[in-house]
Every structure is written in structure tokens, then in C-alpha cells.
């Protein structure tokens, strides 16, 4: 179990430097993949670290600092950038939460996307496909596949139940497959199996 305590000013800076600063690169990458803008990402990381310092007494030493910081960053992102964005939130939660229903499990996406095709795609195509997903779907793929967080950690970072993490991840991956399939066909990759 972690220990929650009130830090002396000197200890605050030590904890900050030892526990938080080592995650700056991961934080920047997460911020950039959310905002898709270098300056916004820098601002978001700075804001997150300032908040982390201000709320350092609610960080329990010995617990997962990276997940704690990611949670602050994600909340800051929602507060700042989503509000500013004119784009409406496209995630239809009804659709997300009910992925285990018969319609979505019967979606037969995989039959027209082949492993060989995926292996032929280059980095830009993969990156573009990921970036084209709505931010809520993009986020679960980033956290799971790129950062390697467990479902439990993701649930804490995103403030949602584990079941929702898993259903959103499933839906996100199906959407990504659709995008990859579109890229593949626009680039002229032919499915050998007809």
C-alpha cells in the first residue's frame, strides 16, 4: 500500500524530481497524440506538471506515478481542449457500451483485411489511421497498445469501469481496422482471397 503524507517543501521538490520528472517524455508523447499539435502538447505537459506539484499531497508514494500523471493530463486535456474544439464529441456511448450485442460481434470486418496487408502498411499510414479516430477511441489504443497500461490502470486514468475500458477498446480496434482497410484499398493493396 502506498503512503499518503504531507510533504515538507524540500521533500516536495525531491518527490517531484524523482517520481514525476522521469515520465516527462511519456507525458509529452501522450499529450502530442491527444492534441496532435506540438505547442498544445508542450502547454498541456507544463500544466499537468504544475498541477501535479500543487496536488502532490494526494499522490501516494510507492504507487504508480505514471498512471497518476496520465490521469491529470487526460483531465486537463478534457477541460481545455475539448471545450475549445468546435467539433462535437462524436463518440456515441450507447454504441460503445453495447458492443457485446449481436450486431457488433457479427460485424465481419476481419474477412476483408489481411495480416499481409497490415504488414505492408508503413508508419505514416498506421499513424494517420490512429489519428483519424475520435479522441476517446484513440486514447484507449494509446494507453493499451503504445503505453502498455493494464485495463485496471486505464480504468483509473479514464475514470470509467473496467468493462467500459474493454468494450471501448474493442470498438476502437474495429474502427481502426476499418480505417486500415480503407487505406489499404486506396493504396491499391489487393485482397488475394476473393
Amino acid at each position: 500500500m502506498g503512503e499518503r503524507m504531507s510533504y515538507e517543501s524540500k521533500d516536495k521538490q525531491r518527490v517531484f524530481n524523482e517520481e514525476f520528472m522521469p515520465h516527462i517524455d511519456a507525458m509529452y508523447n501522450f499529450a502530442f497524440r491527444l492534441t496532435l499539435d506540438e505547442d498544445d502538447a508542450k502547454d498541456l505537459v507544463q500544466e499537468t506538471f504544475m498541477k501535479a506539484y500543487r496536488f502532490i499531497n494526494s499522490f501516494e508514494t510507492g504507487t504508480n506515478a505514471k498512471a497518476w500523471l496520465f490521469r491529470i493530463l487526460k483531465n486537463s486535456f478534457i477541460n481545455n481542449y475539448r471545450k475549445k474544439s468546435k467539433q462535437p464529441n462524436k463518440v456515441d456511448y450507447q454504441e460503445v457500451e453495447t458492443f457485446y450485442n449481436s450486431d457488433s460481434v457479427n460485424e465481419n470486418i476481419t474477412t476483408d483485411l489481411r495480416v499481409e496487408t497490415v504488414q505492408h502498411l508503413i508508419g505514416d499510414e498506421i499513424t494517420n489511421a490512429l489519428n483519424s479516430l475520435d479522441v476517446d477511441f484513440r486514447t484507449v489504443i494509446i494507453l493499451c497498445d503504445l503505453e502498455g497500461f493494464t485495463y485496471e490502470e486505464m480504468a483509473k486514468i479514464l475514470d470509467i469501469p473496467i468493462g467500459t475500458v474493454r468494450s471501448r477498446l474493442h470498438r476502437a480496434r474495429n474502427l481502426l481496422k476499418e480505417k486500415l482497410k480503407q487505406y489499404a484499398s486506396s493504396l491499391g493493396y489487393k485482397d488475394k482471397r476473393k
Binding site: 517524455d25 507525458m27 508523447n29 497490415v118 502498411l121
Partner: peptide, 18 residues
Amino acid sequence: LSKSIKDSLRSHIKPNNS
């Protein structure tokens, strides 16, 4: 297929330094 997509994401989208 799912495994190859996960592998592609990990190998193509490399972390940058801040």
C-alpha cells in the same frame, strides 16, 4: 490480424523525446 495490428502500432509509432 489483431496481433499484427498491435505489433504494427508498437513498431511504427515510436515514442519521441520531449
